[in-house]
Structure formats: structure tokens, C-alpha cells
Computed example of a mutant assay.
Amino acid sequence: MAMEGAAQSEYNSSTEGVQEHSSSPRKSQSPPPSTDHDENKISIKFLLSNAEAGSIIGKGGSTISDFQARSGARIQLSRNNEFFPGTMDRIVMVSGPIDDVLKAVDLVLNKLLDESYVEDGGDVGPRSKVRLVVPNSSCGGIIGKGGSVIKSFIEDSRAGIKILPQDENFPGLHDRIVIVIGTLGEQMRAIELILYKLAEDAHYVQNMNAPFPYAAYLGMNYGPPNGVIGGRYPNNRYQNKMEPNSEDRNNSVTIGVADEHIGLVLGRNGRSVMEISQVSGARIKISDRGDFMSGTSDRKVTITGSQRAISIAESMISKKVATVTES
């Protein structure tokens, strides 16, 4: 599999002198009758693992540049440490006229399928899963009254389509995951139907140009990077339970941050720690100079609030310190 190397996280599309090509087993069914949206640009987002993203980018960006040239769409990826909240997966956004977007998605999924499965000689292609990222406000249109729209999409495409509930563990996150399961042809037909439905949503079209608005969640749920922060000590018994009352705001945890890095957490005039507190909803207290965690030169940073708030605050602190320790 090609590695990402020094490729950039964003590439410009180019179609000059390159012919379109796709080996997808996509069905030959025509799209919905209306073609009013064909000339309008639209975007679609989906998730890839870091390894899959590296494969799509290719050595020096060769693969993603080729896909952009062949499709006419623009393909953007979040950076290799920018994940969708609650996952270890990067976000891919494909933009352009609908037909170009579908060509690009087809190329991406085709490549991943070729690398994941060995041809077994069967008549039916392997079934796989693709996870689309769709604003919560647009999911109602995909579901339809009484589930009528999503049922029609499933019947038309023969793919399995499931919309996951909004993840309440991440305050301010307004996107949901739409899982599409099937052969490549079935997936592409389902994505085509979903994309045309999204194109009818004026709010979706107006707000589709913010590809990766998840900066506040970086590192969440995976723990801090190795060596970034010191010891982590729960200050009550609750922290050691797997089924806590997540809204109990009396939970508290103390982490250690190297004395020389505490300024990154505080920020100028305390702005950084105020921002972390506001975004997470947690209360944050930093020990006085000389008040270290036992046996270390790490200052004590005590985070108090719900488990969710603590998790967000701890991740944001880790990210700030990592900007120095990983350079």
C-alpha cells in the first residue's frame, strides 16, 4: 500500500488531458429524473482509516491527484492526526458537480476494494461498508416521513442503509454517520440517491464548505499521546467504573503537565485555559508554582465536571502540550 509521505492534506483538481476511467461494477441505472443540480457544486464526506487515507493519497500525492484529474472533483482529507470524534478515522470530503463527485467516490471505493479483497471468481462482488458523514439537520430528508425515503433507497440500491443516532458524548457535534453496506455497485447507487436528496436541501448546500470542523475534539477517546502529560489520577471512585453517570458533575481527575509547558495550557492572560473550560464545560485548576505531583516536576492540573467534560478538557490540554513535545 502506498504511504502518505510528505503529501499535503489538500489537492487541487485538474482534468486537462486525462480521460475518465472507472472499473466499478456500478449499476447502469440512470439517476433521478431531475438534472437541475448537475451544474451545481456539492460535497459529500465519508470516513477512512489512516492506512486507507495513505493509500488514497499515494506516494507524493500521486494517487489523489490522478483521481482528481480523472473525475474532475476536488478531494480533501483531514490531516493524519485529525479524526472524526469518537473514531480513529480521517474525514474525506469530495466536492464538485454531482457526476464528478460520484466518479471520484467510485474511484476511491474501487481502489480500497481492490486492496482489501482477493478475487474469488464469484459472480457477486464482495460486500463492504462505507460511512458517510451527514449533518443531523439533513438526515430527516434521507429518512422521509415514516421512513419512506430511506426504504425506497434501500429497495432501489439493494444496499443496507443505516443512520446512527447523534452521538451525545460530543457536545456541539451536529453530524451523524450514515452507514451504507453492499457491493460496490449497490453502495454507489445508494450514495447517488443520497447525494441527490442532499442537493435538494438548501441548508446542506450552503454549509457544505466547512470540511473538518472537529478541531475541538482532536485526540478524544484515545487518551493523550505518549509522554505528553504525566500521571493521571482520578480523585473519586467514580472514575474507575465503566458504567458511570456521565452527567455527574462532581467527578474530578488530576493530570500532570511539565512545569515548562504549563504556559501552553494557561495561555496569555489565561486565555487558553478559559477556552478549554468554555468548550469542554469543565472547571480547571492549575497548582501554584512549586506545587508538583509527587516525585515529579509536573504541575497539577485538576479537571472537574462530567466525564464527558473531563474527556474533552484532557484531550485539548494534551493537544496543546503535544505541539511542543512532538516537534
Rank of each mutant, 00 (worst) to 15 (best):
T302C: 06
D38S: 13
P97A: 10
T323D: 11
I98C: 08
T304H: 09
V279H: 01
N136K: 09
A190G: 05
R176H: 05
G267S: 07
I142T: 00
S315E: 05
S22M: 09
S277Q: 15
K103Y: 13
M188Y: 04
S280Y: 01
T63E: 11
L47C: 09
T302H: 06
S65V: 00
F84E: 03
V134Q: 06
E186P: 02
F46E: 01
H174K: 11
E186G: 04
I194S: 00
S280M: 06
F84R: 10
I312V: 11
S13W: 06
S24P: 03
S14P: 01
P126N: 12
A199D: 01
P135T: 01
I150T: 00
F153T: 00
Q187T: 07
Q166P: 13
D120G: 11
E20L: 13
G144F: 02
A190K: 04
M242W: 14
S148T: 01
N50C: 07
S65I: 02
G290M: 03
R70I: 10
N40Q: 13
A282N: 03
E326V: 05
G61V: 03
T302E: 14
K320Y: 12
P244V: 15
G58E: 12
V324H: 15
F67A: 07
F153H: 01
V94G: 07
S148I: 01
F46M: 09
V273N: 03
S14C: 09
T296C: 08
V133R: 07
P244G: 14
L198C: 00
N81L: 11
E10T: 05
M220Q: 12
N12Y: 04
L193F: 00
V253F: 14
I262P: 03
V321E: 12
T325C: 06
N221W: 12
R308E: 09
L173A: 07
V92N: 03
V101M: 11
A159C: 07
